[in-house]
């Protein structure tokens, strides 16, 4: 006595359809979903955490090579940037030096060429600079700092490099005078970065600390370039001239940028 199977099936389908249609038309379907989400949430959290860590693990395994390559590229980029940064800092320093030289009007007084010190031989009182014959340098040209302080003169000149003979070199000798006074003398290098002032007239009163500048008399250097200041004046009754030591106005050991006066 029951319904035929096909009818039974049809009835089930219709009932199901009616049930879900009604469920979807009312807010109850949200409640049903909410109920299942609530009871499933602890399991879902566990699955989620497991999936997260497992996928991270797989990612690290499969992407290890890629990460390594990326790391190498980044390292290379860092090195490039460091090199670029260093180069920019050098340029900045050079720019500051040139700016300083412009401020004291060096370019108005002389034609200048900028050079960098690339080697120092302080036992022989000489520097090597990065400018040479190709840059228009020739032997005998005066070398100064950006503060207009005398350093020496160009010695040997090569194609791209030159030797600077410092004022303290034993062979160095040039005319100088005491600043603001018409007292002339001859500055002579004594080696070891030392410089003495000789042939100062005996009768003149020389005080320590007075500034010594170049004189244009000998034609070796242009006049008015600061050399240093007087210290240890030696005056003897048996000598016709007095001598003094010159404290150089700049520390030759620390120089790294120079100007060569190409025309004066």
């Amino acid at each position: 006595m029951g319904l035929p199977p096909k009818l039974k099936i049809g009835l089930i389908v219709v009932l199901l359809l009616a049930f879900f249609v009604i469920l979807n038309l009312t807010p109850a379907h949200k409640g049903v979903k909410n109920f299942f989400y609530s009871i499933s949430s602890p399991i879902q959290k566990t699955f989620w955490a497991a999936g997260d860590s497992f996928s991270d693990f797989l990612e690290s395994v499969f992407q290890g090579e890629k990460i390594k390559e990326e790391n190498e590229n980044l390292q290379l980029k860092i090195q490039q940037l460091v090199a670029e940064n260093t180069s920019l800092q050098e340029l900045k320093k050079e720019n500051e030096i040139l700016r300083q030289a412009l401020e004291i009007g060096l370019e108005k007084d002389f034609e200048l060429s900028f050079a960098k010190v690339i080697g120092k031989d302080l036992f022989q009182d000489s520097f090597t600079i990065n400018k040479g014959k190709e840059d228009g340098l020739s032997s005998g040209l005066p070398v100064i700092t950006q503060q207009k302080i005398l350093v020496g003169k160009i010695g040997e000149v090569y194609e791209n490099f030159s030797k600077v003979i410092l004022v303290s070199d034993k062979e160095s000798s040039f005319d100088v005078k005491i600043a603001d006074r018409e007292i002339s003398g001859v500055a002579k290098g004594k080696g070891g970065l030392g410089l003495i002032l000789d042939l100062l007239p005996w009768e003149t009163e020389i005080k320590e600390g007075e500034q010594v500048i170049t004189s244009s008399l000998g034609g070796v250097f242009p006049g008015g370039i600061l050399v240093g200041s007087i210290k240890n004046v030696k005056k003897s009754d048996v000598k016709p001239f007095q001598t003094a030591e010159i404290r150089l106005a700049t520390s030759l050991k620390e120089l790294s940028n120079l100007f060569i006066i190409t025309k004066f």
């Binding site: 499933s40 399991i43 879902q44 999936g51 797989l58």
Partner: peptide, 15 residues
């Protein structure tokens, strides 16, 4: 079925 569906919505989306 319940576990499979939870796996589908919580575990497999990571892959």
């Amino acid at each position: 079925f319940y576990i499979l569906i939870l796996l589908q919505v919580s575990f497999l989306p990571h892959f």
